[in-house]
Amino acid sequence: MAMRKTKELLLVAMMLALVVAARAAPCEVGQLTVCMPAITTGAKPSGACCANLGAQQGCFCQYAKDPALGRYITSPHARDTLLSCGLAVPRC
């Protein structure tokens, strides 16, 4: 009985660790390439785009400060893309 509880606690701890790791996804601007049609032309964002934007949302201000990326991140189409995906527009 004690061994079973130990295994259950270990399983719960591992699941929590996975959730925390998933939320702390590193900033990888390459994940946003799937969003380029939406960001540059105003096309409707794909599901993959919205998922990647959600995963990278904590990185937007960092990207906005990058001279090579800032104009894309702060463009009107980028704002529309975020809103279309149901994501908040960051205030940096």
Rank of each mutant, 00 (worst) to 15 (best):
I73S: 00
P37W: 01
M3H: 10
P76Y: 11
S75D: 01
S46P: 02
K5V: 12
C50S: 09
A55Y: 02
I73P: 00
V19T: 13
Q56C: 10
T40A: 03
K5L: 15
H77V: 01
G47S: 15
Q57D: 13
Q31W: 03
G58A: 06
K5F: 06
P45T: 00
Y63M: 14
H77C: 04
R91C: 15
P90D: 07
A55Q: 08
A24Y: 15
R79S: 09
V20L: 11
C27E: 00
A48Y: 15
M1V: 11
L16D: 03
C49G: 06
A51S: 07
C50Q: 04
C35P: 00
S46F: 00
S75C: 08
A13E: 03
T81H: 06
C61V: 04
L82G: 11
C50R: 05
L69A: 11
A2V: 10
A78S: 15
L16F: 13
Q57Y: 03
A22C: 03
V12Q: 07
S46V: 02
M14F: 02
L11G: 05
Y63Q: 08
A88K: 12
C27Q: 05
T33N: 08
P26Y: 10
T33Y: 11
L9M: 09
S75A: 12
A2W: 06
T41M: 05
Q57V: 06
G58D: 07
S84A: 15
T33P: 04
A21E: 06
T40V: 02
L11T: 11
T6R: 12
M36S: 14
